[in-house]
């Protein structure tokens, strides 16, 4: 029952992703690629790229994409609903508590406790994308020097520009796409 499975998976992602879009990324990788095989690692990398290039929250973008790949439009609707439902319940409960008691110190304490773990999970998913990007495969190869040169250059230049100039990530993505077409057409 793929629709039910999609709903439950994205509900789990909805409950566990705390701290915005990038926090959902490792969870989506876990559910959609590793547990259920709805996406290949390349498709997962594609959806992260598409999500970055299109408006809207990463979690909703991915829910729609995974849902469609797994079960068409009904899949997209079910996955998106699953993704939003926990937020709905939890946020409204917290809002109620907030208006009643005006105290959030315990919630903020829990959030502070979660932050290092969330960063660690994003770092791990980010590392997976780096490996896929520069080696063209999911896991590290035996020969670590067997890199694809053009992605490495684009990665390093993008990273340097992001650190030094703080540009809009969309601009970085677009420039990387264009440079990649040019470089690969000439040297590829």
């Amino acid at each position: 029952m793929v629709l039910l499975q999609l709903f439950l998976s994205f509900m789990k992602i909805g409950v566990l992703s705390i701290g915005g879009g990038y926090a959902a990324m490792p969870l989506i990788q876990n559910e959609a690629v590793e547990l259920h095989g709805w996406l290949t690692m390349t498709q997962f990398a594609d959806i992260m790229t598409i999500a970055e290039m299109t408006p809207g929250p990463i979690a909703i973008n991915s829910a729609t994409f995974v849902g469609i790949q797994a079960a068409g439009i009904p899949g997209a609707l079910v996955a998106t609903a699953g993704c939003v439902l926990p937020s709905c319940i939890i946020v409204l409960t917290l809002a109620y508590i907030y208006y009643r008691f005006r105290g959030l110190s315990l919630i903020q304490g829990i959030l502070a406790g979660l932050r290092p773990a969330v960063i660690a999970m994003i770092a791990s998913a980010g590392l997976s994308l780096i490996i896929l990007s520069i080696y063209g495969q999911k896991t590290l190869p035996a020969d670590l020097t067997a890199v694809q040169v053009i992605p490495v250059i684009i990665f390093l230049v993008s990273f340097a520009v992001l650190r030094l100039r703080k540009p809009d990530p969309i601009m970085v993505m677009a420039s990387a796409g264009i440079s990649s077409v040019i470089l690969l057409s000439i040297f590829g």
Binding site: D46, G126, I130, S158, V172, M173, I178, S180, V181
Partner: peptide
């Protein structure tokens, strides 16, 4: 080809 470059850029954005 564009996706190859944009994947490297996404990896950079996340890093």
């Amino acid at each position: 080809m564009a996706m190859t470059g944009m994947l490297a850029a996404v990896a950079a954005v996340i890093t």
